[in-house]
Amino acid sequence: MISRQMRHQLKQMLSTLILLAVCAIFTFPVLWMITASFKSNQEFIRVFPFMPEKFDLVYFRQLLSGRWIPFVQQYISTFLIATFQTIGATVFALGAAFVFARYRFRFSRLLYLLAISVILIPHQVIIVPLFTWINRLGLYDNIFAVILPGTVSGIGILFLTEIIRRVPNDLLDIARVEGASEYQLLPIIYPLIRPGVLTYALIHFILAWHEHFLPLILLDTPEKLTVSVALNSLGSANLRVGYALLMAGGTLTLIPTILFYLVVRRHFDSTLSQLTSV
């Protein structure tokens, strides 16, 4: 008995140690970015000592002052783009996924396949016709040019359909007996699928928040650009600016995604384990 318990403990300890080592490698660039937002260029290139000489907020202040790029406006613009896109994509996909998951009708299978084929031909691939079409609609340099295409999410359909399929049918039948119409069923089952919906929203928000390609092409006014576009142009245009400024920008960009993750992580974990089996 004792040896078995010891083996178990050894296994536990080794697994934890290996994982912590992997975590160290995975988080190293992130920590480097954060500490580098306090470092001068000479300090940055040396990497070691890892900690900056002093934690002076001078680079953050410079970045936020708007002297190099209108960072505050860009941050707000990115936030609006990511938020609207996430809400739109989640709501639209939720409605369609409910129908695909719970009903069979003529062409339902075909419609489903058409919807998820967006995954195969993402907007990035058809960027040129999208660009000319956005121009014709008069949406060029409008943040909705980035928001609206992003609300069409094949991954959202795929993911939420799987989630809604897992709601027991009896529940829907009871609601029907109680007199609920087919349209009222979705609000009724919503509490059950909320973890899944939030999980999808998190995934979409992360991708939308980091959006770089579409804004680069569909937006023009500096104030409307997303932080990814802004930081990249800052990085390649003028190295006199100092790496610390870029790293400070990166550090500030990390905040919303981390917060969102921490808020919904409980749902995130429980949702994913439901996707096993069947």
Partner: peptide, 23 residues
């Protein structure tokens, strides 16, 4: 069981509207 009821087709409209328009 799911085949019997008339599906809430309107739920498909927002997604497929933007799907057609932007894809």
């Amino acid at each position: 069981k799911t085949t019997r009821k008339r599906p809430p087709y309107l739920f498909l409209v927002p997604f497929f509207l933007f799907y057609c328009l932007f894809w």
